[in-house]
Design a protein around this nucleic acid. Structure first.
Lengths: 350, 350
DNA sequence: AGTTACATTTGGATCGTTCTAATCAGGCAA
DNA sequence: TTGCCTGATTAGAACGATCCAAATGTAACT
């Protein structure tokens, strides 16, 4: 049936109209399920649609209606399972609402981010979900996006002052509270010398998590040694390399709050290489609850951020914004949840 | 500058034309860098474009030109790092060629696959890259896609007979050769009792890998016990659970060729739980070379499939197809490479 | 001046849809 | 008869770009 479609040409409303002797307009009404059309003609038209294998041309419709049926999703790093899960969640929710996802990866390059934003805007997305590249700044993003589409900022804040007339929505994780909870958990287990391990100072999420750690330590009246903050790239490999820095400290810690799961898994590796057993001789926590966390050796105590669910939430937020373009901008902070596993043991001497 | 854009209305060619007193057609020529326009007018027009903050409407252009600037990428499981990397590669190459990626996730559901295909087709993609869901079949895919866009099948074959007039391109991994190489490597290390662990019979990639294993064993004149083939879902968790099946065999193997890395890592976990040290007491290999493989305990010997590179390759193949719609369909088989690490030790008694 | 050649510009139709306002047939009340 | 509603249909102008043929201007050469 549909294989009879002429090779090059696409079937249009005109073809259907001609095929069952009604006007283009009527066919259009049928497609949109209007109650205006007569039952019998509707049946005739629907039969013809099937017969010719018609597919709707949303681009043409969007042009005429000045509407959009797509959302741009721009990610700094799709290879990171956290963002991959997030993307899957976004796509799921958008799809359910009849929208399609325009994907763009920036690979942590602010330059590419500019290019990708520009290119995606030409396709007229109804909105944008942006997880910015590391050194992306508000000014540049504003220059290219302007008021051409509403923007939802995810996961990271933008560098530079945010011009007040750009009121963007935000969806952030509750980094500070998460790190505070993790630290409190270690303290409750009896630890007193706790380090903060991994991440970069200039990442907003890292600063927030560190702040949560400090908050918990202060509240418990525990001392924080300056060499208990160890920076490294948020990757397993770099974390493993930096492990020794923990034991060069004047007061060697018995536990570490890690910037994220990748770092924590790397630290585990580094501990193993030093002959220490994570979860026995040294306690640690992660952040993100990626799939591998539960299956580590030992399983990792971490903060669950539910990236898939966050993706759905992000999609919802943009869709709501589309329906109320003038509403005040929203700053959403998604809760995180402590997942206790075996890596957060009591200190060895206890 | 661009903030002066009137809020609701978008800037069009007409606005620019009016703004610098030329015709719409001339502005269009400028946009496309035609050599026809005079240097001076070009400069005037470009200035006006900048001044009004014009952004190109690719949908309108595509409508008129009957062209497309997007490719649909449909994946069975984006949360899997293999596919996430693949997607990043696709997006990178498409972006470089001025195309945009329309993302669609099916979550291994053939039903959703149908829906997603239908929905994405309405946006008129120039081509489709499809990594099919587990039980997807050729007939259904053909029914919805027809000749409306060229399709590139990635990673898996479709169930059911492939109607001969649907000549789709394919990009597959060299599964059989990969598994054969892995098996030969273990044999060279001195193993004689080697199991094939993980995956489902009804997955084409699993059948191919198993065939490669059998080929290598036969060539080395090694016996294959029937209970050396253990099935499980391609996840770490299920693999860990099924570990015991290896040791229930009448002749206990000393090594295993695993369906993929996830399974291999799960098997490592299961071995640990039985008090066996993978890479010391038992040898094993994976498939895919995902990021965690290099960092496992011990690091995993596996087959590198370079998913990012495969993504770029897939993009290239579709783009080539767009330029030569009538060329004969291509079956590409991507090479895989053995990466030897510590998990593939010699047998303990050797 | 008249013709030709060339470089530049442009009006209007067009892509496949939706929208607005108009049309048309029929029934029913006055 | 006329008028008026009501339900079903439709012609034709949009949307924002591109394409084509035709028009314009300028300079050069008979």
């Amino acid at each position: 049936m549909s294989s009879h479609t002429p090779i090059g040409r696409k079937v249009t409303l005109n073809d259907i109209a001609a095929g069952c002797d009604v006007s283009r307009a009527t066919v259009s009404l049928v497609l949109r399920g209007s109650p205006l059309v007569h039952k019998l003609t509707r049946a005739r038209v629907e039969e013809e649609l099937r017969r010719q294998g018609y597919v709707y041309n949303r681009a043409a419709a969007n042009l005429r209606r000045r509407s959009s049926s797509s959302i741009a999703l721009i990610l700094n790093d799709l290879a990171n399972p956290f963002f991959a899960e997030f993307a899957a969640g976004v796509d799921e929710a958008l799809g359910a609402a009849g929208f399609v996802t325009l994907l763009g990866c920036t690979g942590e390059s602010a330059e590419r981010e500019q290019a990708v934003l520009g290119s995606l805007l030409e396709h007229g997305p109804g909105g944008i979900i942006l997880s910015p590249a590391e050194h992306s700044n508000a000014h540049d993003v504003l220059a290219v996006v302007g008021k051409r589409a509403p923007l939802l900022l995810f996961n990271r804040e933008l560098g530079g002052a945010l011009p007040e007339f750009a009121h963007w929505d935000q969806l952030m994780l509750d980094n500070q509270r998460g790190a505070r909870l993790a630290t409190e958990h270690l303290i409750a287990r009896g630890h007193q010398r706790i380090a903060f391990f991994g991440g970069h100072q200039d990442s907003s999420s890292c600063r927030q998590r560190h702040a949560g750690y400090v908050e918990a330590m202060r509240a418990a009246k525990l001392r924080i040694e300056p060499d208990w903050r160890i920076e490294c790239a948020p990757t397993r490999l770099d974390a493993a390399h930096r492990t020794s820095a923990l034991f060069d400290a004047t007061h060697v810690p018995t536990a570490a709050v890690c910037y994220n799961d990748a770092v924590a898994l790397g630290l585990m590796l580094g501990l193993h290489q030093r002959g220490l057993r994570p979860g026995r001789d040294f306690a640690l926590t992660g952040f993100d609850d990626i799939a591998e966390a539960a299956l580590g050796m030992p399983p990792l105590t971490t903060m669950s951020t539910a990236p898939h669910e966050r993706g759905r939430q992000a999609a919802q937020l943009v869709l709501q914004r589309l329906q109320q373009p003038q509403a005040a901008s929203r700053q959403t902070i998604a809760p995180v949840q402590l997942v206790v596993r075996e890596s957060s043991c009591p200190p060895p001497n206890a």
